[in-house]
């Protein structure tokens, strides 16, 4: 395994096999179509949030710790707007616009004010998440119209409708942009060597600013899915998403320092993380343990980047 990216993907594939093997040995009944469907169902939100996270990290802009807070606050603000009299037909647009704005706030803090991305988005994580709780006193906000629910709960061709209509196009577009367009080359170039990217005239700051907006937009889309799924806005819906999305991005083979990786691996890693959680749920293991396992995976992903593997010789 000369290429570190291939090494990460090998680790990912191994983890997938190990997970399936363990679950099958413990409880063979776990391998059923309905299980796969529910994994996809639970994956959508994390997949969208993880995509924004992946693009930011690829571009070297740093990470976005506030994604969970953005999802929670967007869900709450959208439903509060509806309760305040905004037509329910505007819910999809509202969620996207609010998410975009929250993401652009991160962009202003990190790009324009030059704050460290980790610290700035840690701040907005508490601000957004705290605001969502404070505005609602921790209660859910109801009022999602009935017409939105089938999209959040139904399936098309055996695939959850929201997965088919949001995750798949979003990942296809992102993969195409990265592989086929100059913008994709620029994102990888600036992630590897910011100075060189600036010297050849790539608008590094502007692109990263836009990517923070994209991360917000995708968080807004995730919030919309949560509304259509649960039928109400929950102030804690985005809890732990920053940790899970970061784990998925790194397990998916994206280098934490930027410049290396792709979005296909990220989607596979999202399915791994969610599959693991769903499997543990199926085995009646408490959700606290699920989070611990995600933490372990995160450390494993970082180690795979660092460890001097005996057979890995530099070219």
């Amino acid at each position: 395994m000369k290429n570190p990216h291939h090494r990460s993907l090998l680790l990912l594939a191994t983890l997938w096999l190990v997970m399936l093997l363990i679950f099958v040995l413990i409880r063979p009944a776990i391998l059923q179509l309905s299980m796969a469907e529910s994994v996809l169902h639970f994956s959508s939100m994390l997949a969208l949030v993880g995509l924004g996270q992946a693009l930011l990290i690829l571009s070297g802009a740093g990470m976005d710790i506030s994604v969970g807070g953005m999802v929670s606050l967007t869900a709450i603000l959208t439903m509060m707007a509806v309760q305040a009299g905004v037509p329910a037909a505007l819910i999809p647009l509202l969620a996207l616009v609010i998410g975009l704005c929250l993401g652009l706030v991160n962009g202003v803090l990190v790009i324009s004010c030059r704050l460290l991305s980790l610290i700035a988005t840690l701040g907005t994580m508490f601000a957004y998440g705290g605001l969502a709780l404070a505005l609602t006193g921790g209660a859910t906000v109801s009022g999602v119209p009935g017409w939105l629910l089938p999209w959040g709960r139904g399936t098309l061709l055996g695939i959850p409708a929201h997965f088919l209509t949001t995750v798949m196009p979003a990942y296809l577009i992102a993969a195409a942009v990265l592989a086929l367009t100059p913008l994709g080359r620029w994102i990888l170039a600036m992630g590897n060597n910011e100075r060189s990217a600036r010297l050849v005239g790539i608008p590094v700051g502007r692109i990263r600013f836009i990517l923070y907006g994209v991360s917000g937009l995708l968080s807004g889309l995730a919030a919309l899915i949560s509304l259509a799924w649960f039928g109400s806005g929950r102030p804690d819906i985005g809890t732990n998403m920053e940790l899970e999305s970061l784990a998925a991005v790194l397990l998916g083979g994206v280098a934490i320092a930027g410049g290396r990786g792709g979005v296909g691996g990220v989607l596979a890693a999202v399915l791994l993380v969610v599959g693991l959680q769903a499997g543990l749920q199926y085995l009646n293991i408490s959700s606290s343990w699920q989070l611990g396992v995600v933490g372990l995976l995160l450390i494993l992903a970082l180690l795979s980047d660092r460890l001097p593997w005996r057979f890995a010789k530099r070219v």
């Binding site: 080359r185 590897n192 060597n193 100075r195 060189s196």
Partner: peptide, 8 residues
């Protein structure tokens, strides 16, 4: 420093 992107 040549300003090349090593990953490209």
């Amino acid at each position: 420093e040549l300003a090349l992107s090593d990953n490209l």
